[in-house]
């Protein structure tokens, strides 16, 4: 708290006004309206809204397509986060000599941060392209299996997972490299003197000491894959083939804007809201405790 405060009655309100107006009009009001809307359903002619209570939620959770979408989303987010972090950590741990020029590598690694997920997706779409893509071409020497993401759901899912991991990888690696630089080499040397081999040193010393970085990157990658990959799905697979890549945000958008089922879409938004609140609560609950040294 500052000791020297400006004595002024109305100015502070004026200063926070723009922020608060935007917050209320474009954040709070729509959020509350989503909650309200999730309890209604449009009448058959679309001219009025009928109160259905928890009906939309019951419908959602009884709908195999929605449950599949939830499963796809969790699988997608988990794989993007887990594989992305594991690869970055592995590489960072292997590349852990203190070297010159780290700043240059970091600059290069961080460049994909500037590329929109949708653009990343379109580039990978071509790499995966069944007729012209370089990846199916190379794979055709190994196996006769047709890696056609237009037809095979798991290939499409792999495509967006790879694109998402690619987009996040440099960022994850840069933060792990920075974290490793912060570990005092005396600690590792001490473990070494005690007879710990490289693998044991990694699991007993390095990994625990990096847990704050891992936790931070975990939350960040989960948030990214849950909420910021809409563009990736929309521009590349459009949820398909079938609904193999229809992640929750995409489905909420599609049901609302293409299916015009406003209540159902709002109910999906409310579920997503619960997920964000859960993630945030988790983050603040464990941020200080579990991940300290």
């Amino acid at each position: 708290m500052k000791r020297s405060v400006f004595p002024n009655r109305w100015l502070p309100y004026l200063l926070v006004a723009p922020q608060l107006v935007i917050t209320i009009v474009f954040f709070f009001w729509p959020a509350i309206d989503s909650l309200r809307l999730s309890l209604y359903r449009a009448s058959p002619f679309g001219d009025r809204m009928i109160f259905v209570g928890a009906g939309n939620f019951q419908r959602l959770f009884a709908d195999p397509a929605y449950l599949r979408s939830a499963l796809t989303t969790f699988l997608f987010s988990f794989l993007v986060t887990f594989i992305g972090l594991a690869l970055a950590l592995l590489l960072a741990a292997l590349a852990n000599a203190k070297i010159r020029g780290l700043v240059v590598y970091r600059s290069l690694l961080l460049l994909p941060y500037g590329i929109a997920p949708a653009i990343a997706g379109i580039i990978w779409l071509f790499i995966f392209h069944p007729s012209y893509g370089i990846l199916p071409y190379l794979l055709s020497f190994v196996t006769a299996y047709q890696f056609n993401w237009f037809l095979k759901g798991w290939v499409a899912l792999t495509l967006i997972i790879v694109a998402a991991i690619w987009k996040q990888f440099g960022y994850n690696l840069a933060f792990y490299l920075a974290g490793l630089q912060g570990i005092p080499s005396s600690v590792l040397e001490a473990a070494s003197v005690d007879g710990a081999g490289p693998i044991r040193r990694f699991f007993a010393v390095t990994f625990p000491l990096l847990s704050p970085v891992t936790f931070f990157l975990f939350i960040l990658n989960m948030t990214f894959s849950f909420f910021e990959t809409f563009g990736l799905v929309h521009s590349v697979t459009q949820g398909g083939p079938g609904d193999a890549t229809s992640i929750m945000v995409y489905k909420a958008w599609k049901d609302g804007f293409e299916g015009l089922q406003l209540g159902l879409s709002a109910a999906q938004s409310v579920v997503l809201m619960a997920i964000v609140i859960g993630l945030t609560a988790f983050q603040f609950r464990y941020a200080e405790k579990k991940v300290t040294y």
Binding site: P212, Q283, V291
Partner: peptide, 28 residues
Amino acid sequence: MAAAGATSGTLAADLARAVPATAVRRRR
């Protein structure tokens, strides 16, 4: 980017430490 909170207290310090390219040079 949205919901990343107070997790990286040491991270800034780590990165700051990593920044000077002249750092280091060990007996490795």
